[in-house]
Design a binder for these strands. Sequence first.
DNA 1: TTGCTCTGCGAAACCGCTTTCAACTTTATC
DNA 2: GATAAAGTTGAAAGCGGTTTCGCAGAGCAA
Lengths: 348, 348
Amino acid sequence: MQVLKPNEGKPITIYDIAREAEVSPATVSRVLTGNSNVRKEKRKKILEIIEKYNFKPNAMARGLSETKSKIIGILVADVRNPFYAELFLACEQAAKLAGYTVMLCNSLNNMEQEEYLLDQLVQQRVDAIIQIGGRVDDLVSNMEYVEKVNQVMNTIPVVVTGKLEGTKCKMVRIDSMKAMELLMEYLISLGHRDIAVVGGSDKVLSTYEKLVQYRLSLQKYHIPFDPDLISPEGTYNVESGYRLMNEMLAKGKRPTAVIAINDFAAAGVMHSVLEHGYRIPEDISVVGYDNTYISQILNPSLTTIDYNYQYYGKSLIEAAIDAIEGKGELLKLVTPGLMIRGSSGSRR
Amino acid sequence: MQVLKPNEGKPITIYDIAREAEVSPATVSRVLTGNSNVRKEKRKKILEIIEKYNFKPNAMARGLSETKSKIIGILVADVRNPFYAELFLACEQAAKLAGYTVMLCNSLNNMEQEEYLLDQLVQQRVDAIIQIGGRVDDLVSNMEYVEKVNQVMNTIPVVVTGKLEGTKCKMVRIDSMKAMELLMEYLISLGHRDIAVVGGSDKVLSTYEKLVQYRLSLQKYHIPFDPDLISPEGTYNVESGYRLMNEMLAKGKRPTAVIAINDFAAAGVMHSVLEHGYRIPEDISVVGYDNTYISQILNPSLTTIDYNYQYYGKSLIEAAIDAIEGKGELLKLVTPGLMIRGSSGSRR
DNA sequence: TTGCTCTGCGAAACCGCTTTCAACTTTATC
DNA sequence: GATAAAGTTGAAAGCGGTTTCGCAGAGCAA
């Protein structure tokens, strides 16, 4: 019996294993892929040698041979946003269970970068791409980007958390209307009628939907709509929430409850409210969206919409795998829940 | 001239390009790799066809052929922690500039998972691994893990942000002693003498170093060391900071300044302090480490240690590439800075 | 014209795995 | 005990690139 020469930096291959086990590479490959047509003793011997050298088959070779990488590319706007981080992590875990690896890219909300990364993922021959945030959040899809995605979809399926009109992307979306409905029913049940919405832009699909539901809920309870209780165009960060809330208060508006467009904006809103000498929630209730750990860091802790990231991530991965296999539905809605904490209370 | 059949889901290859350009695949490969020995007109024609079909060479094939993936694996404890997210993002950008792609994995501080992911990265044949947080943060290295890493290092260089005694990992580390020194000099210059350190565990290398420097700084200014001003064993999250600060105050200790072990712990400390009716910074100054956006979310915003993530990430990638090329130094220290915000002030 | 160097380019080998195909063994069936 | 069916196995092709090698032709000196 021959022995492998001590492995000097070169990873060992299936051939090395085959030689030592006195079988052909094909047989080693069979045990690697779980093919059952290998005699028990041989399988055992091969497995022992694999174990002994801690052999890991080269994923590039395997991928090349099978023309699939077993990698799912995940394109997010910015992992520093805990919403994306949570979702990515959930995807990573779900992917692992399904036998896939995951490759994360950050677009930083820059379309050029987004297109570059798509190309990058194509080059890696990922089996599917999940795009979370960025261009796919737009209420009206950017045509140039649609074209780009269609070109990619020629060879690789794309799943999005928003929508991309003019493409056949599968969608896994949060039911934003439902989320707003939950908040409104909750706040109204606490006696609030002067409810503001702060932060975000109605050019973003989910925000647009939230605003639509906001008005529907007002209507349902016969509360008149006051345009001044909706903040103008904003972004999704702390500063924006802070500034917009300041402006609203400066205008003399004094809602008893504020719905911030996400946890970041809620942080800004809370700063502003506290600075103006109001108490939370005694004078003004503040609620947010996302239930990231920010909600727990804030003081008081934030009542917010919860998405069940585990489930959301799992759904995304499932959709991706369905897309790879050419099956599954086009759209799936994820139902949000309400996480009640200290920042909200009855109207005084 | 022949024309490619409309691309029906199968990515086109170098051979398709070659056929249409009426050259050999070798020539196409030459223009792809930037080899200069191709006549101008041919190069131009080939490039046009590549452009026309938006051809991207298969990274697996290329990687297999060159026996290198051009991927750097990045193993972090948990991207949901903005410290890791920031650092990862910086690495991603630096890697891109250097022509590398990056593959992120989360160990979730679970050693089994950590070992699993190392194997995963080996299987992908990444060119180098950067491990940020997790086992490499331990003050005394876990022997089993050291063995695992040594096995990996047989074929793939590993760079760590901590240390791993018994391995030849390159290290790129924050100068934690310097960081603590900055905070102590700053607080002492503001007149503080009763300075507490809350959160973290001295079984973690960086925390250990911080505590060493803490005592050195006290000594320098002839301030007696009070063991009750150092919190016992803690973790690095909000709850821990909250609980430990509560305990310290309950013991009757009343520091005028608190150094929280990171931004999360600082959030907890601030909750506790405010709940006890003290003002920040008038009664108690609170400072933290990491300068993640949490520092800005907190109210008042947090004075904290800043790491210059861009530079840190760049250094990590450089170290990885150096390791791939078998050069560079073993250890590099990154110098931290101080970011002064509203949570700290003069002793009253 | 001969001899040499250079440049440009195709044939073919190779990277490390999977899979088809055909041949060879076993085992089951009657 | 003959024959069919099922189980094992290795040779070889193929995945899509890169690279070596050698050949052909150009350019230049002698």
